[in-house]
Design a protein around this nucleic acid. Structure first.
Length: 183
DNA sequence: TAACCGATTAGCT
DNA sequence: GCTAATCGGTTAA
């Protein structure tokens, strides 16, 4: 597996390649173990209806952070990808708490490592994601070790559920819930 | 200015 | 494992 990360290419490929990469926000973060791809033509994508004030970041250069509020309470972190102007991104659903664990614990108010970053909303909170992060450049570091990657159906959306554009590392205990990966 | 909707989480059985 | 509740932003008129 070439460690090359092509954020400007197909979001689906980017989502798969991002598994294992370490995402840092202000020095806090860890290896990404679960992602979801959102193409511009995906009905479930925020960018689908077209450019708006909210998703403007997704139509900008790839490699930026796109932060949005879900259910009015959960801040979720995405990495913009695909060609500039297209409007695509990769949702960071889960990662392994490695850097700044104490900080994450403080923000989350939980001690259990398993409860820090296992879920989109939790990742956002643990990383201190907020409106200020939107549009900033993603701090990514190459993976130290190759990761096993499995593709499954996405979760938590109401449209285009059948697309297997959810990627995760089955070997990591820090993946969020969802359908068990087929053997 | 008002109404709607959501890429979830937490909690209880 | 399953069901219900949450809050704020975004969109539309």
């Amino acid at each position: 597996m070439t460690p090359a990360l092509d954020l400007a290419g197909d979001p689906v490929d980017a989502a798969r390649d991002l598994i294992g990469w370490t995402l840092l926000v202000d020095g806090v973060g860890g290896p990404i173990v679960e992602t979801e791809a959102y193409r511009h033509d995906d009905p479930a994508s925020h960018a689908f209806p077209g450019p708006t004030a909210r998703n403007a970041v997704m139509f900008g250069p790839p490699g930026r952070l796109y932060v949005y509020l879900s259910y009015g309470i959960h801040w979720c972190v995405n990495i913009t990808c695909g060609p500039e102007g297209v409007g695509a991104g990769v949702l960071i659903r889960a990662l392994e708490p490695v850097h700044g664990v104490d900080v994450m614990r403080g923000r989350r108010g939980r001690d259990g490592l398993r409860e820090l970053t296992t879920g989109p909303g939790r990742v956002g909170q643990a990383l201190g994601a907020g409106p200020a992060l939107g549009g900033t450049v993603a701090d990514l570091r190459p993976p130290d070790r190759p990761r096993e990657v499995v593709a499954t159906a996405r979760v938590g959306i109401s449209k285009a559920v059948d697309h297997p554009w959810r990627f995760l590392d089955p070997g990591s205990p820090y993946v969020s819930r969802g359908p068990r990966p087929p053997a």
